[in-house]
Nucleic acid binder design. Sequence first.
DNA 1: CAGGCGTGGTG
DNA 2: TCACCAAGCCT
Length: 353
Amino acid sequence: MRVEGPETKIARDLLAHYDVHARRLPWRAPPGTNAADPYRVWLSEVMLQQTTVAAVGPYFARFTERWPDVAALAAADDADLMAAWAGLGYYARARNLLACARAVARDHGGRFPDTEAGLRALPGVGAYTAAAVAAIAFGRRAVVVDANVERVVARLFAIATPLPAARPAIRDAADRITPDARAGDFAQAMMDLGATVCTPRNPACGICPLRSDCAAFATADPAIFPVRPAKRAKPHRTGHGWWIERDGHVWLVRRPDTGLLGGMRGLPSSDWGDAPDATPPVAADWRTLADPVRHVFTHFSLSLTMHHAHVGDDVTPDGAGEWWPVARIGDAGLPTLFARAAQAVRREQDARN
DNA sequence: CAGGCGTGGTG
DNA sequence: TCACCAAGCCT
């Protein structure tokens, strides 16, 4: 008779816990069924990259309602898809999502590759997402390592090497505890555990099904794992934005495909930096909002000073853009910064009337 | 390979 | 208020 090693016990205990406590999420097959749809798994995984379950929920519902399968998504209009993604952030994901759907439709007969390597070759699918889809949608044994798994594993084995140097050791340890069967459930169970029990701060070790096998639980402070490097301070930038209104319409531009907010609609704005040029795009009787719109991006914070004016029917700003109905500004698919800038301008206009 | 790349929840 | 951090990927 085979003696069960500690690695096997971890998977067994975790799966038993998962069978009772698994979160019910829209992209998961209902309990007792085995019907994970690769399209929905892939879509959810891309949306969940660096994004919380709560934020993804409504987007996932809207996307699957509007584009129920990969063929429908592949046929989507680029601007429609970018607008539907607005507010979710990391907009390169939306561009890659469309490129991936089209690659699946064109190069794979409309079916997702069912191997980790095949998935990994698709746009926007990295090591994590390829492993997750292979395991969850196709039942493959794959080592799925996201930030949750990283934290759980670093604690289970009390890995004290700081990130990112600890990644190879964490990956090896995750490989050792990943079972041959139910690798998809195991991955989701690890992520559920990280999200609800083995949290970054104040982990709930008292209710953790793995505490008897957890090296960090045996220490004074389990929460110190994984050890993270200190972060650099965010620089602050300033900029100017312009709300140009003409006969109930506002002038919107499309941002370049690469870089910050790439491919998204936006309000015309200056460069953002230490002392940006504040020359307006058109001559007009400009009014300036007293309070700049403040916004925090991943690697800098921004104060955007908003200017607004009405122009005559014969005026059109230089460069590419479109007059968008002010009453439908909510449908323009503005990323959050510009949505808030628009809101600030309209509030000011309302207050003056 | 270190840094660019959004946003919102949380303690 | 503010720092931290999230089901990462790409270059």
